[in-house]
Design a protein around this nucleic acid. Structure first.
Lengths: 209, 209
DNA sequence: GTAATATATGAAGGATTGCTCAGGTTCAGG
DNA sequence: CCTGAACCTGAGCAATCCTTCATATATTAC
């Protein structure tokens, strides 16, 4: 758990026994399902506990309040996502730059598509409860990884690494998100993903020449 | 008011006298301010009325419930935004395609930047209350306008107008939104806007050649 | 086996919220 | 000036909702 986590949102205690770990997982899963079904403003501690098959009191043994629950959920999700991105960046170290962005788009797109409904549910929950800290931390972490990757490109050195990196990351992440909110038919979504890669490559050609 | 507005969200009645119009405006403004200050999940009918300087009952004379209030607010905002975009598209009819996207980015970016705080507040409120209908309508409207514009380009005809249009719109809108959530320093934001234009132009060169 | 610890329960308290309604005030038209 | 329509008031009801705590069970360590 991040040291930067606001104290009011820090988990009360970690599960030590196996059954407790099962319980906490069930609580997380129940939260996702409810977020999905009813949206964030109908997310209730009672309902979460009910669906998780535990009592409210149990939930409060691990999370000091409702917000902390959603916070922890997003933290968990972003942690996994950040790791995937970092892994891709490491794998592409020293590759040609065009291949890099393609890999980045692929990784991010796939991560979001794997459980599209969960993605949507969490996007909404981040907005409702305010988890800006989480988002900022995530952004910083991703930024470091992609910057390092781009700097190692075998076929070019970028004039303004910072600016190009910021542009690529913002465009890719923003586009993916927007694509999700439109709930496009699969074929169109797939086409869009291809076009996004084309676009990024064209951009890199332009700022490289 | 759109005919597609779900009946549970339709305004109860329109203000007929001048003082009533003032009241409704005050209610809208109060909603924005509270959304800004405390986020959507602390938006309360009592608080809205209080800050607007009217009583709760007054609010309920024009809106059947809280959700309808937020809905109407976003409807108003998106209406203005859609008009700006349509206006730009008309103005660029028959222009070179590169100039078109530049104008589109400019218009959208400026519209969002003019009152950046309001933009952020509304982004969040759309997510919390579910106003998907509004977003979909907006998307369809913008789509029609930009498609018509792109089709009239003086210097090229696009192979796949639909796909290119979808790509451009999704990328531009998504990027702008993401840029806002990161609360970038003004200089970086400005640079990003420029890079976005470069990117779109490079993309158009690529799919046109 | 037993003490210490971890985990689970759920009724109930306290606070808040969305919304109504019976009764007032202001305005516009005649 | 008068009357009906438009507009406004705000105490209070009903419905939740978040959270606690006294109590009970399961697990681990010895």
């Amino acid at each position: 758990m991040d040291a930067r986590t606001p104290s009011a949102l820090k988990p009360r205690k970690r599960p030590r026994q196996a059954r407790a770990r099962v319980t906490v997982d069930a609580i997380f899963e129940a939260t996702i399902q409810l977020l999905l079904k009813d949206g964030p403003h109908r997310l209730t501690t009672t309902r979460v506990a009910e669906r998780a098959g535990v009592s409210v009191g149990t939930m409060y043994q691990y999370f000091p309040n409702k917000q902390a629950l959603v916070y922890a959920l997003n933290e968990r999700y972003l942690e996994v996502l950040a790791e995937k991105i970092e892994s891709t960046c490491r794998a592409q170290h020293g590759a040609p730059i065009g291949q890099m962005v393609e890999a980045l788009v692929d990784t991010y797109w796939r991560a979001k598509t794997e459980r599209a409904d969960v993605t949507r549910a969490l996007y909404r929950s981040v907005a409702e409860m305010d988890n800006q800290t989480l988002v900022d931390d995530f952004a910083a972490r991703v930024n470091a990884a992609t910057t390092a990757m781009l700097a190692s490109a075998s076929d070019t050195t970028l004039d303004d690494l910072e600016a190009t990196n910021l542009t690529l990351v913002t465009v890719i992440f923003g586009t993916v998100r927007n694509a999700f909110e439109r709930t496009l038919p699969a074929a169109q979504a797939e086409a869009l993903r291809g076009q996004l890669v084309t676009m990024c490559r064209a951009y890199l050609d332009a700022v490289t020449a």
